[in-house]
């Protein structure tokens, strides 16, 4: 049986009836099997959708990317204020001298040294993640690197799957002086 009260169903489901009308509609639900069935089904459906819909969560790397960009933005900000001490090191070229074999040496000797690397003269350590770009060096016993205080390249690195991640103490050996 359909009557004008049945038309209030959607408003009732949306919780939009005022107290008096809601009370009237509840009384109608008692006698109207059709509205009761619809209301029951809607309650079931809402619960089902809510439970199924909230299972989905964002993959962790969605936030990582955001994190990277925020890191980048924050560093850029710091750079603008000239507050970061790392900034001083940003465009610094490090010439790293090795104790063994000072001066230009023939290629074979250098190869040997590569297999058992010489101890560095100094160790550069930092409290933040950095990107180190190794440049072509005209001297076989000198490593030239450029240091950037950012983690922005991590995405590039992950995508290229060329993962060269070394502990800072292992790679950043050298002396800025």
């Amino acid at each position: 049986m359909k009557n004008h009260e049945c038309e209030q169903l959607e408003a009732y489901l949306a919780d939009e009836l005022n107290d008096t009308t809601a009370a009237d509609f509840l009384a109608h639900l008692e006698v109207c099997a059709s509205c009761r069935a619809e209301a029951d089904q809607q309650a079931w459906l809402d619960q089902l959708l809510h439970d199924a819909g909230t299972i989905t969560t964002a993959a962790p790397d969605v936030l990582w990317e955001v994190e990277d960009q925020i890191s980048h933005a924050r560093r850029k900000q710091r750079r603008m204020y000239g507050m970061s001490t790392l900034l001083a090191a940003a465009s610094l070229l490090l010439a790293v001298g090795l104790r063994r074999d000072p001066g230009p040496t023939p290629a074979p000797k250098f190869e040997a040294n590569r297999q058992s690397p010489a101890a560095p003269v100094a160790t550069f350590t930092g409290a933040e993640d950095v990107i180190v770009i190794q440049h072509e060096s005209p001297y076989p016993n000198v490593t030239i690197v450029q240091v950037y205080p950012t983690v922005d390249a991590s995405r590039r690195r992950e995508r290229n799957s060329e993962r060269i991640l070394l502990p800072a103490t292992n790679i950043l050996r050298g002396d800025a002086s």
Partner: peptide, 13 residues
Amino acid sequence: SARLKRLYLVAAP
């Protein structure tokens, strides 16, 4: 004319 050779990402401990 230093050519970019390699990119390292160094994570601080």
